[in-house]
Design a protein around this nucleic acid. Structure first.
Lengths: 225, 225
DNA sequence: CTTCAACCAGCAGAATTTTCATGGGAAAAG
DNA sequence: CTTTTCCCATGAAAATTCTGCTGGTTGAAG
């Protein structure tokens, strides 16, 4: 994984890039706020080092754009000013560390190491919910009314799709296309069979039914009859 | 959880203590290195703020004593000197951040927040635990029900990853990506083989099984069936 | 009210996929 | 050079997935 360095002064950026590369990091450089923002949003970096003073967008604006879509990647801000005003603004905006120029290179390395070392796998669990039914698509767990349900892979895929579109009627073709991908036979009743399996596990043990049949159209996830 | 502040100048310590308390932190103060070390080693703190210059023991000596028995608690060093020599010494000794006196109070608060926040999110303690299974990722030791287990490097890596995400189903791809890094063949069954090795050592000798397979999805660490 | 066609639920066993558990050989460590 | 660790390959076992079928329901036309 790479480090993104956004710094407009060629001397400084070259110095940092070379130094970090000697320490075994891979470094990519952007020379202005516009390009920096673009790279930061389109690639995954291990760490982003942002100068505050940049052409087009300031480092703080870039930081804001990054945090709007990604909370995870650590960001280290560089500033020529030791003014606390800036520092707080940066921390408030989601920066993980701050360094005041001029800085000692070994200190930069120390902070870079601290920030990259720390990144554990932050499991982003995308949790879908409907009524008392909960599905964690990352952890692959499902619960209803607090009770864990044991589903097979197909059942899970089917329920996930239904949960992604609560209240919407999904045709057999739509369900098959998503859950069975390309390999599915139009004349088959697999979908029906699996909806049935799902009902046995998800609806049967509970009084309120969530999976409903719409004759001639398909199936829906919804509360009432 | 409290913050421990080790600072001998009464004016400074009172100022910091009051200020942090206004921000909602609980603060305990020690006025010399000896007492500071004693408190740090005998209580669990959320963060320890250490002045470098102290009576009896220096802040660096206290830090060393802390790190000898606890890698986890974040430590913020305060120094009157801006000399890089000191800074590196502190980072090398295991400090998590550094602040040069005189500092702006808001900046201290910002760094304190960063350090306490980070810890909460991460919960990346060196020792992972689940049920009666314990793994110390720093010491590379594993015990179950008090008995030490002898694992190979791969087995250890695999168990560590499972232990980091208890209850979450991890796919073979996820496991392979983390434990085998880039060098792994998708068509291989290495993961299965190593899960089997792990089970022989971790689960087989014990009545309660912890590693479970979820057919079509991957493996989980969890208590029940 | 009856009939008919389309549609759907549910089952049971066959087919397929996935996983387990080994043995053996290559590579690395001691 | 011996031991340990690592990985591949294989067949057996287990679990899931699918097919084909029966019977029930619905709704519209006669």
């Amino acid at each position: 994984m790479k480090i993104l360095l956004v710094e407009d002064e060629p001397k400084v950026s070259a110095f940092i890039k070379r130094g970090l590369e000697e320490e075994g990091f891979e470094v990519e450089v952007a020379y202005d706020g516009r390009f920096g923002r673009q790279l930061a949003l389109s690639h995954a970096y291990e760490l982003i080092i942002l100068d505050v003073i940049l052409p087009y967008f300031s480092g703080l604006e870039v930081l804001e754009a990054i945090r709007a879509q990604d909370q995870q990647t650590p960001v280290l801000m560089l500033t020529a000013l030791g003014t606390t005003q800036d520092k707080l603004h940066g921390f408030g905006g989601g920066a993980d560390d701050y360094l005041v120029k001029p800085f000692d290179f070994p200190e930069l390395v120390a902070r870079v190491r601290a920030l990259t070392r720390r990144r554990g796998q932050q499991a982003k669990s995308a949790v879908l919910q409907f009524e008392d039914l909960t599905l964690d698509s990352a952890a692959k767990t499902v619960t209803r009314a607090g009770q864990p349900l044991k589903l097979t892979a197909r059942e899970f895929g089917l329920l996930e799709l239904l949960l992604r579109h609560p209240g919407r009627v999904l045709s057999r073709a739509e369900l098959a296309a998503d859950v069975w991908e390309d390999s599915f036979d139009a004349g088959s009743n697999v979908v029906d069979v699996y909806v049935n399996y799902l009902r046995n596990k998800v609806d049967k043990p509970f009084p309120r039914k969530l999976i409903h049949t719409v004759v001639g159209m398909g199936y829906v996830l919804r509360a009432q009859e």
